[in-house]
Amino acid sequence: MAKVSMTVNGQNVTRDVEPRTLLVEFLRQHLDLTGTHVGCDTSQCGACVVHLDGRSVKACTMLAVQCEGAKVMTIEGLAQNGELHPMQAAFREHHGLQCGFCTPGMIMSAIDLVQHNPSPSEDEIRHWLEGNLCRCTGYHNIVKAIKAGAASMGG
């Protein structure tokens, strides 16, 4: 067992974990933050995307022990005082989700995009989503939602 401490959604957490514990397992099983999903085992689907020190990463392709001292943000940490993050609101407004399983990863990925490209084109959005699979929406409304979300984030 190894001790690991990090900040998750603004809260300091410390747990003893097996070194082989993935970050996503840590979030889901140790912290009960089940909004971050696991959709594959080859690091492609992006259902597990979270922010690590402000950038989007696949929580299934990191060990929890690698996150010592890091700041992790998950889908559960986005809404502030009950108010949705503009990207969350945009996904709802533009029907950017159906079954909802890929959605947390999509939203976390989209926010990372907009943080360094405040007004992405449709083409840029589509390329950015290379690491996020969705089987329901055909991506059509996800792209629209991200565009709108970027605009309301101030892009």
Partner: peptide, 9 residues
């Protein structure tokens, strides 16, 4: 290379 999340790690 890869996708944005792979590039971030």
């Amino acid at each position: 290379i890869g996708d944005p999340q792979v590039r971030n790690r």
